[in-house]
Structure formats: structure tokens, C-alpha cells
Simulated assay, not measured.
Amino acid sequence: MLDHDFKTLNAFIQTARHGSFTAAAQALELTPAAVSKSVGQLEQSLNVRLFSRTTRSLSLTAEGDYFLNRAETALALLQQAAEHIGGSEAQYAGSVRLSVSNVIGRNLVLPCLKTLQQRYPQLDIELDFEDKIIDFVKDGFDLVIRGGHIPDSSMISRELAPLHLCLTAGPDYLAQYGIPRRVEDLPQHRMIIRRFANCKYSPWYFRQDGALLPFEAARRALTFSDPEACALAAADGCGIAEIPVYLALPYLQTDRLKILLGDCHHAGDYRLVLQYAHRNLPPRVRVVAEHLFAHLSQHAGLHTAPQALAAFAA
């Protein structure tokens, strides 16, 4: 009974989080039809519509929104109670090795480790902060978090969140050099550029006349391999930088950065994913994966839409 209740509630919660049966099915490793059926059974048992459905969209009803807030808490409590009564806490002991890039590890993973330790004190979490491509078997990792354009592989990938980009500069820089109002104004400005490990530079993209066009700076004032360094340099007034929204948001909220060309700058189609080698994860690894997924799928910096940044425009 409990197992069925867990699955039904989880199907509803994941559908609400992801906004579609297909994305929820991917996260749960089920078929969209199975997720849709579970949500339908829940609606039938509650005798209320939780989602408004059209051929193109899926959105929570007022009743669904009310139920979601309480269902998430209820599911977590049910899981904890079942684990405690079943004596299953012993399963959540041992080492879990996680590979994550430096900037993502520092800014997104480290902040959620305290609650993970509190819930599973017998776990030994080992984080390897590396940007290199790893071999799961050879290097002995249980989980990997990566961001960017993730190539197809034999690994199982669960999308945690989109990785939106924004174009920014500090108020001091803009006061000295002026605010670019068009893409054509950018060559007169100082650029802070990111260079990847393969020595390629990251171009900026803009929407112009219905097309997506790259812009590559001819004049590079500063070049970094670390996006966090780009954010710090922009906030210090060194130039214009393209950085992930989750890095920019704290600076935007304290007026240390401003958004530029938000009406035409392309936020990118990068993704943050959690990868592992096999579907049948050991309990000690599964609880870490689910904790990371729950934390990062609700992270404000990852789920701030580019349109919402207009309030921070220069």
C-alpha cells in the first residue's frame, strides 16, 4: 500500500515540478503513460482536477497548487517513517563518490550537504571537484553532475535544471564606458570572455531578424576558464561578461551587476544533469541522488526565467 502511495504522490510532484508528463517520466525512469495514469488515479481518488491540460501545455489548478505544497511535505514524512520502522537506515551507510565541476560544486552542491548529512549521518560523501571527462568504472565514481551541452552516452542522465546565461556588467563600468543598447555597440566595449579546457572561446548569441547569430569579441580585455571569475571581474567593473544566471543573481539583487541587451541576448540551451552508470542504484547512492535532485530542482538561481531578469536591466 505504502509503495503505491509513494509512487502516486511522486508522479504528481514530479509532473508539477517539470511541467510535463514526459519530463516527469524521464526523472522517474517511467513511461509518460504510466505517469499520466498515476496522476489520473490520484485525481479520481481526490475527486478534483489537479492539472489543467491542453494539447500544448500542462499547468496546476488552484487545487493542484494547494495540494502540491502539502504533498511534498507529506511524502517526505511518509518516506522517513517507513525507513525508520523498516530499520532501513542501515542501508544508507558507506561511501558515495561524486564528481562535479568546481564552480557547480562550490555554488550548487556544497550548500545542500549539511541537510544531507543530518538526514543520513552514516554516509561518507566524497566530492571530486574536476572539470575533466571521467571514466565511471576506472575512476570509481557513483554520481556525476555536469553542466553544458551534454553529449549522448551510455550513462543515464537526469536533467536537474536548465542553465540559463545572461549578459552583465557592473554599474561602475557602465558609468565609465556607457550602456550598450545594440549588439553593434559591443565592439567598443571591454569584454570578459570564457575559455573552455579545449582552448575554445565561448561565443555569445543574439536573436536578430528571426535568426540566432554568434558574436565573438575581437577585443578581449580578460579571459578566464572559470565562469565564477568572469562574474567577479564583471562585478568589479572590469568589463562585460556572459555568466550563468545562478552566479549572477546574488550580484543582481545587491545592485553589483546589471543586465544588458536582455531583449535580444540568447540565454542558451545548456542543461545541468545528474549522471550515473546503472538504473539500479544502491540505497546509499540513491538517497544522495534524490537529495541532490530535490535541492537543485528547486534552486531559485537555476529556475529564474531570463524574462524575469528585466527588473535588473541597466
Score class of each variant (00 low, 15 high):
9 L>T: 01
25 A>I: 12
42 L>Y: 11
272 L>F: 11
188 Q>L: 11
83 E>C: 09
19 G>L: 13
80 Q>W: 03
43 E>G: 09
253 Q>F: 06
166 C>N: 03
139 D>W: 02
39 V>N: 02
140 G>N: 14
245 V>M: 04
165 L>T: 02
179 I>G: 11
51 F>A: 03
151 P>M: 04
151 P>E: 01
272 L>H: 07
28 L>M: 10
134 I>N: 06
156 I>P: 05
36 S>A: 15
259 I>K: 04
301 G>N: 13
215 F>V: 01
68 L>T: 13
142 D>T: 07
233 A>F: 02
110 L>A: 14
216 E>T: 14
204 W>K: 12
40 G>I: 09
57 S>Y: 08
120 Y>K: 00
53 R>T: 11
255 D>N: 15
291 H>F: 04
283 P>A: 04
155 M>T: 04
215 F>H: 03
6 F>D: 08
118 Q>L: 14
208 Q>L: 04
88 S>R: 14
140 G>V: 12
283 P>F: 05
125 I>F: 08
175 A>Y: 12
32 P>S: 12
57 S>A: 14
44 Q>N: 14
43 E>Q: 14
218 A>N: 14
160 L>I: 01
235 A>G: 10
190 R>E: 05
69 N>F: 10
193 I>M: 07
72 E>I: 13
300 A>T: 08
248 A>R: 09
254 T>E: 13
248 A>G: 08
311 A>L: 11
288 V>Q: 03
99 S>E: 12
28 L>G: 08
250 P>H: 00
23 A>L: 14
22 T>R: 13
228 E>H: 07
115 T>R: 15
242 E>Q: 14
202 S>Y: 06
236 D>A: 01
264 C>I: 11
181 R>T: 07
310 A>F: 09
3 D>C: 06
302 L>A: 00
282 P>K: 12
127 L>W: 07
104 I>H: 12
69 N>I: 14
203 P>R: 01
67 F>Y: 15
84 H>T: 09
75 L>G: 10
265 H>A: 08
45 S>F: 07
286 R>V: 02
278 H>A: 12
6 F>S: 03
222 L>R: 15
149 H>M: 06
281 L>Y: 08
150 I>E: 05
298 Q>I: 03
230 C>K: 00
294 A>H: 12
79 Q>K: 10
109 V>Q: 05
160 L>Q: 05
160 L>Y: 01
42 L>Q: 10
238 C>N: 07
182 R>F: 01
170 G>M: 01
79 Q>E: 08
247 L>Q: 00
164 H>P: 02
26 Q>H: 12
266 H>C: 08
135 D>W: 07
91 Q>V: 00
119 R>A: 09
63 E>W: 09
219 R>C: 06
120 Y>A: 04
4 H>N: 11
230 C>N: 04
